[in-house]
């Protein structure tokens, strides 16, 4: 690691004031930041330890339904929280499918959304041609090994995917990411938080320097929701494809569906066209469900080695819907 100075933050005000200085980085769980420092992905000169800020590690019910989750809550604590387990199984499942028990004890729900891609070229111990490592150096994966890369929303500048599991669940839940910043905070829809590579391939999300995630807000309970993760080993591995489904049902009929795919683009990928067509479908009618899902794949574009992910993603979406329907409401 390149040398840096360190300070522990004890108030939100001081934190966002100090964080606004260039080359400052916030340290919460550390499970991403430390690896970036070791690989030279970022080289901040000032580290602001926010892990002991008060009041950011609670789950609270929102008036009028919904929950607010403090950004510094550790992943395991979110996933095992009784209200999350009961009302937002998709989020609980997504978290418990992420990383390992030890890492989930460190990583925070806010920090998790700031994960950078797992593209092997980006994560290499040497700096390889990669526009996310160095803008203008090119994309090694485009003509290299890309079998686990994007099928949606990629450009020739970057074909990577966003790896966060919780982010996929939050996108399907229409969660809101609440931030604080010296110039005022924001409320950002989860599905719009991460950036596709079309404008600034080097950027991962919409946050500005010094902007801090303080909470995640979940709308009304979504007990019929589920997460499905596909990976070659059973645990402790990033997804090839994942799918989050949130359903509202009338008996066996889908009233409303929200679907998001993970590891298929640089942001959780909402299947809006499919969602529209799913309204009114019978859960037992696999053909109707598949036809609806198909609508959202018109824009899918495979790379040289990952056409299989298109079929895989369709099946994952279907299975996630069926799994969500089986969750008791």
């Amino acid at each position: 690691m390149t040398p840096f100075v360190y300070a522990r933050a004890d108030s939100l005000g001081d934190t966002i004031a100090a964080g606004a200085a260039p080359d400052s980085a916030f340290l919460a769980g550390g499970t991403e930041l430390l690896n970036w420092l070791r690989l030279g992905i970022t080289e901040p000169t000032r580290i602001i330890d926010i892990s002991r800020l008060d009041g950011l590690d609670q789950v609270e019910a929102l008036p009028g339904g919904g929950l607010t989750i403090g950004a510094l809550m550790h992943l395991n604590d979110v996933a095992l929280h009784a209200l999350v387990v009961r009302d937002y199984p998709v989020l609980s499942q997504a978290i418990l499918n992420a990383a390992s028990p030890q890492l989930r004890n460190l990583a925070t729900i806010g920090g998790n959304l700031l994960q950078k891609t797992r593209c092997a070229y980006f994560r290499a111990e040497e700096q390889l041609p990669c526009n996310k490592r160095q803008l203008g150096s090119g994309c090694s994966a485009l003509h290299g090994i890309n079998d686990n890369h994007a099928i949606f929303g990629w450009t020739e500048d970057c074909v990577a995917t966003q790896p966060s599991d919780p982010a996929v669940a939050l996108a399907a839940l229409d969660a809101v990411i609440v931030t604080a910043h010296r110039s005022g905070g924001r409320r950002i829809p989860a599905a719009e938080f991460h950036l596709l590579p079309d404008t600034r391939p080097e950027a991962d999300n919409v946050l500005q320097q010094g902007e801090l995630i303080t909470a995640i807000e979940l709308p009304a309970p979504a007990p019929r929701s589920a997460y499905l993760k596909v990976r070659e080993r059973e645990s402790y591995e990033y997804a090839i494809v994942s799918a989050a489904a949130v359903l509202e049902m009338d008996g066996q009929t889908i009233r409303r569906a929200a679907l998001a795919l993970g590891s298929v683009a640089l942001r959780p990928w909402r299947l809006s066209a499919a969602e529209e067509q799913l309204a009114g479908a019978e859960i037992g009618d696999r053909e109707a469900l598949s036809t609806a899902i198909e609508q959202s794949f018109a824009q899918a574009r495979p790379l040289s080695q990952n056409a299989y992910k298109i079929e895989l993603a369709k099946t994952a979406a279907l299975r996630a819907i069926e799994k969500a329907a089986r969750m008791s409401s």
């Binding site: 092997a120 290499a124 390889l128 090994i145």
Partner: peptide, 21 residues
Amino acid sequence: EPVLGRFLSKNLSGVAIPVNA
């Protein structure tokens, strides 16, 4: 890696080995 002539991943998150599960 076919272009750069290196092992694509040199870490245990890019190279899968069995886990307990």
